[in-house]
């Protein structure tokens, strides 16, 4: 039991990931799909961020005079900063596209857009 919960961060990641993935697959509304995509990406951010944490570790700021300090690994955090930027731009671009689709088709429902495409 303790083995199952000692890595609870992974469970959160998995639940988030599946929630997001399921939303992307199952929803027909394009905005909801994007939100699902966002949740999916966020779960991966969490995966990276939690892996940088070291038990008893502190923020990686070098303090003069202290030798035996354990620092958390900062690199995953830095990486994820980049990934967040990527995620934000993806969402922004996706939403911009959805706005344009709404203008062009008058709907943001995938099946309706497809029906329009086939009709014309």
């Amino acid at each position: 039991m303790s083995h199952l919960f000692s890595h609870y961060n992974y469970w959160i990641v998995i639940v988030l990931m599946m929630t997001g993935f399921y939303t992307v697959i199952s929803r027909g509304n394009m905005v909801k799909k994007l939100i699902g995509l966002n949740i999916f990406q966020t779960s991966v951010f969490l995966l990276f961020i939690t892996m940088g944490k070291i038990k008893g570790g502190t923020a990686p700021i070098v303090m003069a005079g202290k030798e035996d300090v354990v620092y958390s690994n900062p690199i995953p955090h830095v990486l994820i900063l980049t990934a967040i930027v990527v995620g934000v731009s993806t969402t922004a671009l996706g939403l911009a596209l959805v706005v344009r689709i709404k203008e062009a088709y008058g709907t943001v429902e995938e099946d309706e857009v497809q029906a329009e495409d086939i009709r014309r």
Partner: peptide
Amino acid sequence: RKALNAAYQYLVMGTIGSTFIL
């Protein structure tokens, strides 16, 4: 206007792909 939908679908698929790589 079909280009918009094509780009959107590509965006969703492509983001899943690159997140998997991540």
